[in-house]
Amino acid sequence: MRVLLAACLFAASASAHHSMAGFDRNKTVTLTGTVKQFKWANPHSWIEMEVTNDKGSMDVWNIEMTSPAVLIRAGWKSSSVKPGDKVTMMAHPLVTGEPGGIFVSVTIPSGQTLTDRPIQPAAATPPPRP
């Protein structure tokens, strides 16, 4: 099974144009799979990735992200993640159990782990919130 439930290791982080009620902030899943699409856009970026489920078939997970303006301050570029990349993603999943979640972090093929937290001291940029 490529989807692992982990303890809530990360503080909830998201900025959204919609309600966050559907995400389980007390749960973090680790997804290992292949990036299908990465959209670098306002007001939200998103990653679509293919993940093999415990029955051996493929699920497509949509992972909501914050805005590029926030991601840039966290060290992201539009080329940070590309279709076909094998990545390990951490996300807060949907409460309903459907494949989908809100972004926490991703480890890309270079081994670098990217989050949506600013690299500069927190005082320079407010923490994202729902």
Partner: peptide, 25 residues
């Protein structure tokens, strides 16, 4: 150090936002 940029709520966006799906609302 910030400017305002173009931002639109698009059908394409919401297709990839699991929280906006009817099953979540």
């Amino acid at each position: 150090d910030q400017d305002i940029t173009e931002a639109s709520c698009l059908p394409d966006l919401n297709e990839h936002m699991p929280s906006t799906k009817p099953s979540q609302n």
